[in-house]
Every structure is written in structure tokens, then in C-alpha cells.
Design a protein around this nucleic acid. Structure first.
Lengths: 339, 339
DNA sequence: TACCTTACCGCAAACGTTTGAAATGTTAAT
DNA sequence: ATTAACATTTCAAACGTTTGCGGTAAGGTA
């Protein structure tokens, strides 16, 4: 079936020299005469010889592959992160293996095992929402495999990390709403065991406090999916004190909340302002377009790979680093003009 | 840095036997005494030995890896396809390497080279919009590497294929609009060098014809991005004969078109109906939710992997197959109730 | 005693590549 | 003529695993 690939032996046989000579010739080793080098290079070119990466890996003890575990590729943020990972990894001579945890702890554990038994040189992970036991991560580091967390990090394990400045992003978004006149702002939050959800919530709280607005417990509501938004949002508007702003932990939730609010008869942004988080494709689809906090996923991916490869190729230990990626508020139509 | 993984040699040394005995013991070879087998298995368990897939690949001449090239992961359809690919591939003992072409011909060519030089056992491809030269695909097959096209296929090359029944999907969508009363239906089409775009267009045409509606050339408009929709759509409604239905080649375009039409003052679906293609996350975000043709990306991915692995593991040649995945019209709020 | 089974195990080669050491050939200096 | 110095090439081992074949020891048979 498979037509055999050209090997270094084929080249050697054809030229009547030994495989080691071919290898050295290709590496520009000073021992080899230039006549031989030229002959080798010419034939290599003609026969389109490419070294077998598998043999190289066996020899070098490195697979030149990095493993990535993300919750779900369907989400805009994660697909942009993956693009960043891919681009830099390939440029650095590494391959990439993806696994999705699908927000399931069991699948995350299985993904770690898959990656480990594939002998990847390093692993990049963004936690799934439900993970609270971290033994599978400890197995990675105890195997001596470098590990970098990105976005949804685990602070119980000492590693390199790349995080988005969620607190500041949330702060900026909520501050903007306040400047534009909102006073009763609801936060639709994620599960607070997720650090990113907690940080966004804290940014929301700080923005209120710095503007002398009382933080009400009932204005922070767990709601991070479209379904939940449909369930939860109408209730918020049956309160005596109607909300005039909604800051959601992600764009999808913000979008569905906006739709729901419009159906209740409110105008966006005149009666209610909306701010989301991610600023992906979704934010342009809502009507009006959604003001949102851009997370720069592509950069997150690149930085994570950079840290990982540094660690993989390091000769000796050096202190762990946490890279913080600045967010950026992208103002669109779902908020009133700021003061 | 790296703590070495346990090898078969370590096991052998510890037990005072040879590596080959260990290997045979693990494979249940009849030559090996059950006492030895038990001892080996016990130590393997205790030391958590896992065979090195790289050594296995070198030996077996197979990398147990399949390569995938998609235009862009950010699109819902492709991420669902990837999920399907991943799930079945891992279950079948294969790894997956992804590349994005980003709708660029050059990157597609580069991706093929990357995959080929990685010695993947087979390749799955969905063409990028701009590809019209197919030499890089021919290189794959002439290298003896099995190749399966999915969704955006190339009909100049003989291989296995998995396609969505675009013509029927389009036909169903447009027929539904007609039944619900639409008579002046615009088709926002993709570039017709893409087979899927052509097929969807033909489904649109057939639906009109079978309902005795005249097919007007000016009602088929190249427009397959949000930007284009913003440019193109207002013009359609300055015509004497106003459209009362829009069938778009993808959801994103449909969504933006709908937004534009609403801003022009028309009601959806009362004045204008909308049907999209893909039925992903986007279709739930529009207001009203978008009636769309579900492509079953997950199944497309699984089928593509199934065909590919069959081909990889086949001992002999057998005829190529084209698998057609049925679409399904998912009726939501952007169309009037059908007759 | 000589031979044959049977049961168990190790040797060595192989996959494709790299690399230090050893071998070969050539030239020039003694 | 002998040897040192050098240029060029090959050898052999190694990476981790598999597998056909050969080997050995114990026991059985003639």
C-alpha cells in the first residue's frame, strides 16, 4: 500500500557511500569533503528526502510535540488561543496534539493520560469548569513534563501560567457602564471555583466600590449559559428596583440576556446596557452589537507556547512565571456613550 | 530535567530477565511461563510502564497519527467536525494533528507539506475557498498516503469523500420558505468554484423551479461574509420588487443580513423570512432565532475518520466511496409557519 | 546411554538516524 | 624509507520495541 519514503540509506546506497557520511554531509560536518556534500545535497533534493521525524524523536528523546487540553473548541476564545498556539508551535518546530475535555473532569483526566502516554514534551491546559481535584496535573509535573496553565489556571500547582487580566477587564467594563449612567448593574457570573469567574466578579465589585455604589449580594447571580439566561433574567426585571445594566461573564450569556430583555420590552442600551466578555464573533451578531472585553486569545496562545518551549528547552531550573495579558474594552452599541 | 520514562529494559533489569522476554510476556506469548508473565505484569503495573509510541512507530512503520486540514476552527461547523474526528480517532488508537489553512492557498500547501513530513498515516482535508490548483493533493496520493476530503471536496482527485447533501439541504430550506408564502427569494451565495456553494445554489434553483417560480439571475448574489452582507443587502431592498425571503449560504451571513433588514424597518419573519446554513450557535443568537439547515458536522467528522482508517488499514485496494450525510432543516423563528 | 520433547528464555536484527571513535588513504616532513 | 599529520570515510552503538530463531535444561522414551 504505502510507497516507502526515501531514507538516508537509499541515498547512501545510490551514492555508494555509508549512511553516516550522508548524515554528516547534510549537517555540514567539517569532516566531509565538499564534493561529497554537493553530491548528497543534489540527490537529496532530487529525491526529495526528508528525515523521518519518528527516528529523530527516538534518537533525541524528544517527540517535538506539545499537548493541549481545552474545554471546548467551539468557543471563540479557545479557537483563537489554539490559532496562537499552532502558529508559534509550528514556527518553533513543534507539533501540536489537541484534546477537548468537554467540560468533563473524567475526560480531562483521560486527556492527560493520552498526552502523557504519547510522550509529549510539554502540556498546555485550560481547566474544565468542574475540575477540583488536581492529582492528574501533579502526575504531569512529577513525570518531569513541563506544564503551563492558561486562562483557567490552577493555583494549587506551581507552574508557568498565562492569564488574562480578568479583574481589570471586568473593572473597565463595569466602570464604563457606570460612567455612562448605570447605577443598578447585575453581574451574571460563572462558577466561583473557577478563578477567572472569581476575578471577573471581583473586578465588578471594585468598580462599584470605587464609584461609591453599594454592592448588593442579590445583584451577583450565577448564570453563565444561554439556557440559564433565559431562566434567570426575567426574574431580575420583576424586582422593584429594575436593573439598568448587565455585565455577563461571557458573550453568549450576555447575548441571550439581551435578547430576553428586549423581549420584555426594554430598549438596549437606552433602558439597559450590556457588557460581555470575550469580544468574539458573537459580539457583532447581537442587535445592537455587544460592548465586550477583548481577551486577546491569540496572544494568550502564543505566550503560553513561548513559556512552555522555554521550559522544555531549558538546561536548568529557573523560577516560574505568570504572564498577564491585558484586556481591552471594545465599545460597541450595547452601552450608552460614556461620560 | 526530564525524568526518564520507564522502559522495557528497566523492567527486564529489575527482574533479571531479558527485554525480549518482557515484551513477549506482555503480549501473552505462549513461550513465556505464567510465573514470569505474572511477575512482569505486576512490575509493569507498579512502575506504570507504558510502551513508547515513538519506538512502536519506528518499528511498525506507522505513526498512528492522522493529519487534518481545515479552513478555520473558529467556525462552528468545523469545530463540530473536529470533535467527531477526535473522538473516533482516539477511540481507534490514532492521534490527530490539526492545521488551519485560514482560507489561504499558500498555507494549505504548507500544511500538506508539514503533515507529509510528519509521516502521518493519512490525511483529512476540507478545501480552502481559494484553492484551484490541486498538485499538493496529488503529491499526497502519489506518496501513497490515503486521503479523504470532507465537506469542501475536490472532484478532480479520486479519493474517498464525505459530503453534506448541500443540494437537498438548500432545496428543503427554500421549499419551506416557498410553502410559507415567500415568492421573491434572494440567494446569498458563496464563490461558485466551491462545490458546496454551487450545490446549495442548485438546490435553491430546483426549489424555485419545482414550485414554478421563475429563477432570476439578479436574485443570486455572491455574498458570504458579514461585511459583504452589510454592503449588499440594502441594495436588494431598494429594488422595485422587494424580497420576501433570503436564503444565505451560511449562518453568519444570514444573521448579518437579518440585522440589516431589521434596521431597514422590515419585520422578520412577517415581511422577510430568513434561512441559513449550518445551524450552529449563531442560529440561536439572532432575534428571532434563525431557521437553518443542520449539517451534522460531528457525523461528518466521524465518517471521514472511518473511511480514512479503513483505507489506512486495508491490505489491498478497493473502490473509493463517497459518503453523503443527510441534512435536516431546523425550523426556528426566522420563517413563517409553513403551509 | 543416546536421543527426542517440551517448556522456557535470550540473541540479534530490524526500524531511521546520529555521533564519537576507529580505520583508511594521502601527503609531506624527517 | 619511515613516520607524522591530516583529510576523508566507515564502524558501531544507541534510542525502545518486536520477533524469528537458536539455545538450554529438565524430563521422558527407547
Amino acid at each position: 500500500m504505502h510507497k516507502a519514503q526515501v531514507t538516508i540509506k537509499d541515498i547512501a546506497r545510490e551514492l555508494g557511500i555509508s549512511p553516516s557520511t550522508v548524515s554528516k554531509a547534510l549537517k555540514g560536518h567539517p569532516d566531509i569533503s565538499s564534493a561529497t556534500k554537493i553530491a548528497v545535497r543534489e540527490l537529496v533534493e532530487r529525491w526529495n528526502y526528508k528525515p523521518d521525524p519518528i527516528a529523530l524523536s527516538l534518537k533525541g528523546g524528544q517527540s517535538k510535540t506539545i499537548g493541549v487540553i481545552v474545554p471546548e473548541i467551539v468557543h471563540y476564545f479557545f479557537s483563537t488561543v489554539i490559532s496562537g498556539i499552532e502558529d508559534l508551535a509550528y514556527d518553533s518546530g513543534y507539533h501540536v496534539m489537541f484534546c477537548q475535555s468537554n467540560e468533563s473532569y473524567e475526560r480531562e483526566v483521560k486527556a492527560v493520560e493520552t498526552l502523557l502516554s504519547s510522550r509529549v514534551d510539554g502540556i498546555l491546559i485550560s481547566l474544565c469548569k468542574t475540575t477540583s481535584n488536581f492529582d492528574h496535573f501533579r502526575k504531569i509535573t512529577s513525570d518531569g513534563i513541563p506544564l503551563v496553565f492558561f486562562d483557567r489556571i490552577c493555583d494549587e500547582i506551581e507552574t508557568d501560567r498565562v492569564v488574562v487580566d480578568d479583574e481589570a477587564g471586568a473593572f473597565d467594563g463595569v466602570s464604563y457602564m457606570i460612567k455612562s449612567g448605570c447605577r443598578e448593574i447585575i453581574h451574571l457570573s460563572g462558577p466561583l471555583n473557577l478563578l477567572i469567574a472569581k476575578n471577573r466578579m471581583e473586578g465588578y465589585v471594585r468598580a462599584l466600590k470605587e464609584n461609591n455604589i453599594r454592592v448588593k449580594k442579590e445583584n451577583i447571580v450565577k448564570c453563565d449559559t444561554a439556557e440559564e439566561a433565559r431562566m434567570v433574567v426575567p426574574g431580575l426585571f420583576s424586582r422593584t428596583k429594575k436593573p439598568d445594566g448587565i455585565f455577563a461573564v461571557n458573550d453568549l450569556t450576555a447575548a441571550e440576556a439581551m435578547k430576553t430583555v428586549k423581549h420584555l420590552g426594554y430598549k438596549v442600551p437606552d433602558n439597559v446596557s450590556f457588557v460581555g466578555f470575550t469580544s468574539g464573533m458573537i459580539s457583532d451578531l447581537t442587535d445592537p452589537a455587544l460592548t465586550s472585553v477583548e481577551q486577546h486569545g491569540y496572544i494568550v496562545g502564543k505566550e503560553a507556547v513561548r513559556l512552555l518551549i522555554n521550559r522544555i528547552e531549558a538546561k536548568e531550573d529557573f523560577p516560574f512565571e505568570t504572564k498577564i495579558i491585558r484586556t481591552e474594552l471594545v465599545v460597541k452599541g450595547s452601552t450608552r456613550k460614556g461620560g
